[in-house]
Design a protein around this nucleic acid. Structure first.
Lengths: 139, 139
DNA sequence: TCTCCAAACAATAATGATTCCTGTTATTAT
DNA sequence: ATAATAACAGGAATCATTATTGTTTGGAGA
């Protein structure tokens, strides 16, 4: 399937995704566009994100905490996912081993995702992590 | 949280997961155990899988087609996910770059997942893929 | 520019995996 | 054996995502 017609909303959704490196959820895109496009519906956001993904214009990094995270950067790159704040961060200077795909004995690989999990620097710097590790509640 | 008491069902769930390398879903474990344990409920399967995961006894490879895939093999290893049949296959002879974790500038990484996506050999061998590519239906 | 039709849309219902809740049962320490 | 408490079944609830339906809009051709 291919993108066939243009629409303000479709382009707004794509440029919204392209305006950030935060690998947002569908809901994030919706919330961000809703003020300037009051009659926008979630269905439209989901439909267009799925369409862009099928067309290879965007990619879906993975599912974090039950929510799909999208990325306008389709260049293969490594990600870091924070287990505390669910941030998805681009990892610079590390290569995704796509060149090994052809060496696989499992099948014919078309792409590869390399994701690190851990606590991001922002969470480490805040006291939140320490309190959480002690079993306390952070308000 | 830790596993505190023993129960037949809890152990059945763990050994069921350990009996396969297919990286099953919660529902698969349930369906497999239900005949021998008729009064088993999905809640128990989900609760115990979550508990084992928190305890580090098992791992969750990722979400494939909206369903979590579990793995009793907690040794870091590479996976291949088939985009046609959703099979999750262990990739032998390829190392997960966990040793690079400390080099990250994003935060403190605790683990890493390396997943290839493509069409598995079984799907390539069957005619299903070709028919699908032609837009036909396979019965 | 006007017309027409397929695509895009809003609104909302439906789906389905997962989680939560309540009363009951099973396990372990004493 | 008994008490304390974790584990459980059954079912309701949640919530991200998808499907449906009727309406609107974009754009190719007249």
């Amino acid at each position: 399937m291919q993108v066939q017609k243009r629409s303000k909303k479709r382009e707004a959704i794509l440029s919204c995704l392209r305006s950030t490196t935060s690998h947002p959820t569908a809901d994030w895109v919706y919330s961000r566009l809703k003020p300037e496009i009051p009659n926008l519906s979630m269905g439209t956001v989901y439909r267009n994100l799925a369409m862009f993904k099928r067309a290879g214009v965007i990619s879906m990094v993975g599912v974090v905490n039950g929510m799909e995270r999208f990325d306008a950067n389709i260049t293969p790159h490594v990600h870091f996912v924070c287990t505390h704040c669910d941030a998805v961060i681009d990892v610079e200077d590390m290569e995704v081993p796509t060149h090994l795909a052809s060496a696989l004995t499992c099948g014919c690989a078309s792409d590869c995702s390399l994701i690190f999990h851990g606590v991001c620097n922002t969470c480490i710097d805040s006291d939140a992590v320490q309190y959480k590790n002690l079993g306390g509640n952070v308000v």
